[in-house]
């Protein structure tokens, strides 16, 4: 069983060993903290666009940096690598389960009236869920390109990160946006 599985099994039980702080192993790349501090908000932002959840996005960002810490990706390519990894990891989370959706459903108690303010929040949340569902159905490369582009990466950065030509970034993003619209419309018309 994995370490994280144990943590899930015993939530709230903080592992003595993992609570050791100020003890980043010497084997971890020396520029990690510098890169982390520069890129963490952006990586969280990429994951948040996919997941529509700050907490989940921070989890994904942590997972991404853990993976990054074990690589020798040049510092100059770090941001692209991290953003792509965060997008993939977040999309994996989307596809691996409907946990949040089921939690949100379960959280609704029909016996309690919904106020207008809260209703707005519910609508917003439903929108996020629809978008996430649509995103998870896009071809992976399109989805990643779309998220990266809308996270502020330039065409050149998206091209480098996804090993595409800058010209084909526009094509990929365009197809992704068109597919996203179709997915959203299809979902809306089937409701």
């Amino acid at each position: 069983m994995s370490h994280s599985a144990w943590r899930r099994c015993f939530p709230g039980v903080k592992l003595l060993v993992t609570e050791r702080e100020d003890a980043v192993p010497a084997s971890v790349r020396s520029d990690l903290e510098h890169i982390f501090r520069a890129a963490y908000p952006r990586v969280v932002g990429v994951a948040a666009r996919v997941l529509g959840s700050r907490d989940e996005a921070e989890d994904v960002a942590q997972e991404t940096f853990l993976s990054f810490s074990r690589t020798d990706v040049p510092a100059g390519e770090a941001i692209g690598w991290l953003c792509v990894a965060a997008a993939h990891t977040a999309l994996n989370h989307l596809r691996s389960g409907r946990r949040r959706a089921s939690r949100e459903e379960a959280a609704r108690d029909p016996r309690v009236a919904v106020s207008p303010d809260v209703a707005d929040a519910v609508v917003a949340r439903d929108e996020h869920r629809r978008v996430r569902a649509a995103l998870s159905r896009l071809p992976r490369k399109q989805a990643v390109a779309l998220v990266l582009r809308h996270s502020g990466l330039s065409y050149a950065e998206v091209a480098a990160a996804l090993d595409l030509s800058p010209g084909s970034v526009g094509t990929t993003v365009r197809r992704a946006e068109s597919a996203l619209r179709e997915e959203l419309n299809r979902h809306a018309s089937s409701r």
Partner: peptide, 15 residues
């Protein structure tokens, strides 16, 4: 970012 770094440091040490 500080809290994020603390969390990552803990994970790295635990790993």
């Amino acid at each position: 970012v500080d809290e994020g770094w603390r969390r990552l440091s803990g994970s790295l040490a635990g790993a």
